[in-house]
Design a protein around this nucleic acid. Structure first.
Lengths: 221, 221
DNA sequence: TCTAAATTTTAGGCTTATCTAAATTATTAT
DNA sequence: ATAATAATTTAGATAAGCCTAAAATTTAGA
């Protein structure tokens, strides 16, 4: 049995591992869960005893196969529920995270699989993040940051590196959505800010910082 | 803030009050939550401090207005999710209780109201139990036990007094479902068992015990 | 390289929700 | 009316998760 809290630790470790590749520090986990470092140490010992992580004091932490499997399943549930909330209940993409954060802990295999079917086996959530399949496999997608693309390339917005409400609402205001076709018109040499066209017509200006947080696929041209 | 566990106590007290009308005993609560009486006493003190119940030691318990409101909201969520699971995900009515038992604790007002709309503002759950509205009002429905109906009356099955999986599956086997039109052909004097017709054709035999647990509406004839 | 700073762990406490066993109060039967 | 029984509450423990403060370890700077 993996408790609600243990699940959140595993998910946090998984997400940190995705970003940083290296071993995950106690402090990083503490920060991401808004708890104190001492609490994290306690939990790491427990998770290690349960065989969900490899833990060597002072040296960091890594998920075991079983730990990763547990974490990925939670991510799967989270993202499926987000699709449900947006596609079926009509929520906006910036509203669904807190609800999915609760729904993800409900654990009935048949519920997940029926939900998946009901939603049409979606491969990406409303923010463009991939939804792992029942076996925990992610569909790999080739994406680069918009800040790293070249002028003239045909691009399509397929994901985000930042999921804060503020950022999502900013994109809404600029009418930048997943699936938008983007072309870079010009990069300002001074601050690397970009002028882009969206869906072939509207022209908008965005900062380098924003462009770093937008993931695009490069389309054949 | 009402914790997950406190919610379950309030719901248990509410359900016992529905059935028994009288004051609710510590033991009854303990039994329905599968905990020991001593644990119940602890919790009753806490709920009383929070103003959710009226509690006098040794004399029983009653929900306050606020306590009832909290309990009814949980019931509303439970039953809406049951409708979702059956109508949208295709579960059978005997499968959904444990899932709804978890989903009912997820508390976002907008989620509930959007789910309600998505489901078409259902007034009854898959077992025929009424779904309270946002204000906590139940739509009253006139029902009697099948065991109390008379031969010759036109009846319609609209609810159940027993929600165990075994009973639900028994009804499935007899092809008795909510909405079935029922007429009593004969009541055996010896054991009060009934011969009934279902939807005008099929004739089945059921025990008095089963008939006591089926709620029917008497239709004008 | 060795000391100062940063990180991590340990130790001791707190809260919530549970338990068991003992003590108290209420109910029932003679 | 009172003794036996049943129900309830109290007291003392336990486990999970969190905290703060002190100790230990690692890392980094001079």
């Amino acid at each position: 049995m993996v408790s609600y809290t243990e699940e959140n630790y595993l998910k946090a470790i998984f997400k940190l591992s995705e970003k940083n590749k290296e071993e995950i520090s106690t402090n990083a986990i503490a920060e991401s869960l808004a708890v104190k470092a001492g609490s994290v140490t306690d939990m790491l010992k427990k998770l290690a005893e349960k065989g969900l992580i490899h833990y060597t004091p002072y040296s960091g932490v890594e998920l075991t196969g079983q730990g990763r499997q547990t974490a990925v399943k939670i991510v799967r549930k989270h993202r499926l529920w987000e699709v449900f909330l947006v596609e079926k209940l009509g929520f906006r993409w910036d509203q669904v995270h807190p609800m999915a954060e609760e729904l993800e802990h409900i654990d009935f295999d048949e519920l997940i699989e029926r939900l998946d079917v009901f939603l049409g086996n979606p491969k990406f959530d409303p923010h463009g993040d991939p939804i792992p399949d029942e076996k925990g496999e992610f569909q790999p997608s080739e994406s680069i940051r918009l800040s790293e693309a070249d002028t003239g390339q045909r691009l399509q917005m397929i994901g985000l590196e930042n999921h804060t409400t503020a950022f999502l609402q900013y994109l809404d205001k600029k009418e930048l959505a997943l699936g938008s076709r983007i072309a870079i018109v010009e990069v300002a040499p001074f601050d690397k800010s970009l002028t882009i066209t969206i869906d072939g017509d509207r022209q908008v200006h965005i900062s380098h910082e924003v462009a770093k947080n937008i993931l695009v696929a490069v389309k054949e041209s």
